[in-house]
Amino acid sequence: MSSHTLPYTVESHPVTGLYSGKFGTWLFLASEVMLFGALFSSYVLLRVGAPADGPGAWLSHEEAHLDWKIGGFNTLVLIISSVTMVMAWASLKMGNLKKGKTYLAVTMALALLFVVIKLTFEYLPHIQHGLVPSHSTFFALYYTMTGLHALHIIGGVVVIAYFIGPGSALWAKNPEYYTNRIECTGLYWHFVDLVWIFLFPVLYLL
């Protein structure tokens, strides 16, 4: 890349206790908290401000037709994927690239499973029944929030795929650096799961 090397790409900074990539990831997640925080706040404001009845009123559970069992299963899928993500990192820490990559592949498969379930058992049937974003404020929020979350999942899949594939070349040169990158990916991944853990009760149960 360039001739000079920047410090703290691998080793931790004495004051922050983090290497630069991890620090940057935490900051990025702080901004993500603000992004989803704004959406959750909007949810609260719109729900509280909705007319009591008549057009524009908040949808009841029955009207929304959201199945908590599907949502719950997907929650489980994501929680397991978080565990396999940790396993991937732990394997790399112990110097086992092959095992690490396997766990990464499992994580990716679970992420894809989540997206496929979301599409085939939720989005498509809903759209067929006319429960599209313009149906009501609830569905506007539902599609925006879960859609944005699904984009985050897909973003994660792309990153993981990169680290299984071309990104893993770094292992040969600097295994610790590669392991750190997986740790950062893991932080992001746990955050995305956490968002879902908030989304699930807010949209399916409350």
Binding site: G37, S134, A140
Partner: peptide
């Protein structure tokens, strides 16, 4: 870092209003 994301959320909602026919900002 902290102030821009809410506008991004608002921008997405306005895009939804304009493109998907939602009513985030329409009474």
């Amino acid at each position: 870092l902290l102030a821009f994301p809410p506008l991004e959320a608002a921008g997405v909602m306005q895009l939804m209003d304009r493109l998907a026919g939602t009513s985030f900002f329409l009474p």
